[in-house]
Design a binder for these strands. Structure first.
Lengths: 189, 189
DNA sequence: TTGAAGGTATACCGTTAGGTTTACCATAAG
DNA sequence: CTTATGGTAAACCTAACGGTATACCTTCAA
């Protein structure tokens, strides 16, 4: 099998295991077993488990944001509606059987040092999400797009925690209601 | 030394280590070494590492909520002001050098199964926080105290994640501004 | 036809994990 | 005075950890 494909196999399986069971709790033996790959192959592609973690987080960031943007833009056409649709996308995610919180919030819990490369990557992911919201906020004509984006981002993160820790699957709707107030306030000329 | 005191020594040191470095990443050898206690003593007081984790979470819940209530009620006298003071208490916490996120959000990341006893305890902690906010909301005369409490709780959780993952220490102030808006809305007769 | 590239399985390395066991020591109450 | 109680240090257990080494098997292009 082609090398690139092996690499993806490893990343995809590691992604699933890290997301469901955590990073420290998932051993490389488990990963190679589920990926159907030898240990040598894993260490041909990644210098260490930590490098694999980084590769997984990068792939998750890409998949997650692409999906978020695609779904948001599919669900609504007007900028203001799209800001609200963000919360519907989140809400649908919470209801998925495999939902296990935000992988980046989870990773930050295990790699708690702000300077840890894994933690840095988590912060970058959140920043990119916020950047996207800011674009939508600007399109919607918000007075202070960055501030609105930060507010909505905070709501989204709160909803994710609500849904994961407390198992409150309706957190998406609550955040949406709160977000609507803030959006109206920000768009008032 | 008295048994009760040894138990507390173990819990206190485990609390510090678990909070700073995570649960799976912290071994019992490290805990007994820092607590200055033999392994036998640890296993006299706790059946397993997992039982120690539960004891630590229970203590953290008690310390955290007591401090939160004490500080909130010290900073403001009127119910509405107290609702706002919650965010100041959080904001001050974010600025502490040892701040490493919410221990219960972190624990939920590592014990991701909702039925895991550790995760259950995390959900209970969040519920108790929400209960307290609901009491303040009722005293302030909110139309729907439970709904307002859930909203403010969501803001608090969002702010904690903002502060920890992204390192945004001003998240407390942002959440406070958002909270003030929602409080005014909820108190409008 | 040959030989590198990239795969496989498997054994192995030292370390650490959670947890148990043994033998001994201090204290304090009956 | 004795004897539980609760502590100590340290050896030990099995399993798993991250990571390496060896030997062999395909595939495919020079």
């Amino acid at each position: 099998m082609a090398a690139a494909s092996k690499r993806e196999q490893i990343i995809d399986n590691a992604l699933k295991l890290f997301y469901q069971n955590g990073f420290n709790a998932t051993g490389v033996d488990r990963i190679i077993s589920e990926a159907g790959v030898s240990k040598k192959t894993l260490y041909n592609h990644f210098r260490s488990k930590n490098e694999l973690v980084l590769a997984v987080l990068r792939k998750r960031d890409e998949l997650f944001r692409n999906n978020m943007m695609r779904e948001t833009e599919r669900m609504a056409m007007e900028p203001r509606s799209r800001l609200l649709a963000l919360f519907d996308v989140m809400g649908n995610w919470f209801h998925e059987e495999t939902f296990s919180g935000c992988m980046f919030i989870n990773a930050s819990a295990e790699f708690s040092d702000l300077k840890d490369p894994c933690h840095v990557l988590c912060a970058e992911h959140k920043k990119l999400i916020c950047d996207y919201i800011e674009v939508l906020a600007k399109q919607a004509g918000a007075q202070d797009p960055l501030e609105l984006a930060k507010q909505l981002n905070l709501l989204i993160e709160g909803a994710i925690v609500n849904a994961h820790v407390e198992g409150d699957l309706e957190a998406g709707q609550r955040a949406k209601r709160m977000g609507e107030f803030l959006i109206d306030l920000a768009l008032r000329s």
